[in-house]
Amino acid sequence: MINVRRATAADAAELVRLRGILIAAMHDHLPADGGWQQQAQMTLEKRLLAPEPTLVAFVVAQPDAPSRLAACAVGTVEERLGGPGNPDGLTGYVFNVATDPAHRRRGYSRWCTTALLAWYRDHGIATVDLRATPPAEPLYRSLGFERTADPAMRLHITGTA
Rank of each mutant, 00 (worst) to 15 (best):
M42H: 15
T54Y: 10
D64V: 07
P63Y: 00
Q39K: 15
L48M: 04
Q62R: 11
R47D: 12
Q62M: 06
L48V: 04
L44Q: 04
Q38E: 14
P63Q: 03
L48H: 02
P63N: 02
Q39G: 06
F58E: 00
R47C: 09
L69K: 03
F58T: 02
V60Y: 02
K46Y: 11
T54I: 07
E45A: 07
L69D: 01
V60M: 05
Q39S: 08
R68F: 01
P51R: 07
V56H: 00
V60S: 05
L44V: 09
M42E: 15
A70D: 00
M42C: 13
P51V: 09
Q62E: 06
Q37I: 02
Q41C: 15
M42Q: 15
V59Y: 05
A61C: 06
L55R: 05
L49Q: 13
A65P: 08
P63L: 00
V60E: 03
A57H: 05
A61K: 00
P53F: 05
E45S: 10
A70K: 03
E52H: 13
R68E: 01
A40E: 11
G35V: 01
A50C: 11
L49C: 10
R68W: 01
T54G: 11
E45T: 14
L48A: 02
A70L: 02
V59I: 13
E45P: 11
L44E: 05
Q41V: 10
K46H: 13
P51Y: 05
P51I: 09
P51E: 12
A70W: 01
S67E: 15
Q62S: 07
Q41G: 14
V56G: 02
A61N: 03
L69F: 05
L49A: 12
T43I: 11
P51G: 07
V56E: 01
L55T: 15
Q41N: 12
T43N: 14
R47V: 08
L49S: 15
E45K: 09
Q41M: 11
G35T: 02
Q41S: 15
M42Y: 12
E45M: 10
A61L: 02
D64P: 08
A40G: 12
Q62K: 12
V59H: 07
G35W: 03
A61P: 04
K46W: 08
L69A: 01
L69Y: 03
